[in-house]
Design a protein around this nucleic acid. Sequence first.
DNA 1: TTGAAAGCGTTACCAA
DNA 2: TTGGTAACGCTTTCAA
Lengths: 347, 347
Amino acid sequence: MTVTLADVAARAQVSPATVSRVLNGNYPVAAATRERVLRAVDELDYVPNGPASSLAAATSDLVGILVNDIADPFFGIMAGAAQGAIGAPGAGRAGGEKLAVVCNTGGDPERELTYLTLLQRQRAAAVILTGGSLEDPEHLAAVSAKLARLTEAGTRVVLCGRPPLEGVSAATLAFDNRTGAQRLTEYLLSLGHRRIGYVAGPENRTTTRHRLEGHRAALAAAGVAEGPTVHGRYDRPSGYEVTSELLSRAPDLTAVVAANDTVALGVCAALRDRGLSIPGDVSVAGFDDLPFSVDAVPALTTVRLPLHEAGARAGRIALGAEEPPAGEPSTIPAELVVRGSTAPPKG
Amino acid sequence: MTVTLADVAARAQVSPATVSRVLNGNYPVAAATRERVLRAVDELDYVPNGPASSLAAATSDLVGILVNDIADPFFGIMAGAAQGAIGAPGAGRAGGEKLAVVCNTGGDPERELTYLTLLQRQRAAAVILTGGSLEDPEHLAAVSAKLARLTEAGTRVVLCGRPPLEGVSAATLAFDNRTGAQRLTEYLLSLGHRRIGYVAGPENRTTTRHRLEGHRAALAAAGVAEGPTVHGRYDRPSGYEVTSELLSRAPDLTAVVAANDTVALGVCAALRDRGLSIPGDVSVAGFDDLPFSVDAVPALTTVRLPLHEAGARAGRIALGAEEPPAGEPSTIPAELVVRGSTAPPKG
DNA sequence: TTGAAAGCGTTACCAA
DNA sequence: TTGGTAACGCTTTCAA
């Protein structure tokens, strides 16, 4: 039925062991023999049986990339970069390529665990967890336990965009959300804004908390009272919805900071629908510097996270092609990007 | 080291065969025995070895979803819906879940083939190819051959958003890009536009060709001469860049149709940068009805493709939970969505 | 440099 | 309803 390694061996008049060695390129084989084997592989259109080799070698070529929302370019950019880094160099166990796969958790803790189990079952070579994480202690414990099992079994674990995990020895690339958020609010304050609303992400998420902390730190340092803060999901409809609450609680807002650019989009749409001009009546600031959003709100002031670089680096670490950050988890800076859309308050 | 099925069997005082049957739930087992086995599984924290079972069963729980650009919500929405449909019902070979994985080809034909080979090697249960396809005969032949091998080996193949392939028996869900594009241009014509520019996608892509054909059909039916047409990539920077060429070739344009919403975003940005107002000076129309873009160009007129529904359906078909469209590949309608941003030409 | 053969952990068939 | 036991296709010592 399907062509096996034995078929190739027979055709090339060598032993299966030799074929395996040629294919894996990790063992000396005479040039002539290699030639013969490769020809046989070609002629028979042989494709190795992944499960079989994974079973024998006790590891697979699979690299899992977990994302919270695959429809959000924030994750798409990171995942794409990681996948690019993994697919490119071609370093499967056998010089064959790795299979970088993206798994969409939808931000659901259960699905996150399910995917980790699935990946564990597949004996994945590496797992990359991207984006902020839930802060529920129970869930964190479960994830930590799972990751510990994975690393134990030889799976490399990389945290990209979330803080390190208690008791898990994983390479960590954490964004400096806190400082970024602080800079953003400082900038608004420097323009003269004093009544600033804040649309936060879901409660219990690291990104939500860190960004909010940065925002509050800036306000505190300037001695400015915190404006209304509302929580919502990290998507556009949510930004749209919660804006009404924000305005009802403080109709005199001069600026709104959104948890991220996607949410900022919704905020802007809601403001426009109420006849408020941006930045004439209200200035809006975002976070992440997503290309999509920057178009939506011409020249949105936001914070740039190096999503592409972080993803690519995570990919290389997962591959073992780059040393993981030693000791302290490396913190990736968040850079304030000022564009024209943010103006001083009216009057 | 790691817990195996034999360990569970020993602990539960049954044979390995029985444990397998309990886990796969596809064979009668006495309730008491099942109970005992499940407890052992739990106590030992046993996770089945995927590669081993894939080898023995000659099929895996992997479902591959190929996308052209993972950072583009067009694909994100489809992939997310497919993944949701696949993850949800829990119908691995064993009542265990399937692992739906997204593979990013970047629109590169070679990577597309590489991923197909990788999935073939993994003995994937199903493969979903999303979005338009390259029309290069050589590449098409290679893909067809690959898909033929896959179906032969029992992998289900679903084409979602691209036309059927010669000689490949795959379930096909094709968007009616042609009619959608035609409606869109008809609408502009009905408003009185006569000088309409067109920003097409990359040459040799099915979506590019079909949408352009629809556009031309509308013009021909109305007896209106075709305006300038330029080709670019399916992304925002490309839309931005080619707009200058469009304007230099026809400074008197009153409307621009973009190959999709993402491109329309770039077009709008370029027009704004030249001081042209939308839709005051130039009306812009898109395609795909992406949430992101609709915000960017308040009330962009566009064509809605049921991305979510299509993706979910593709997922169910891949699972075998839904019958694939019989006989003729089912064509999914594209619906014109008129919003306020498109106006009659000035004067 | 090559070959022989013993696993790797499940599944599934055949008996019991 | 359960157990015994060949496969499944590859990797990897150990010898030659």
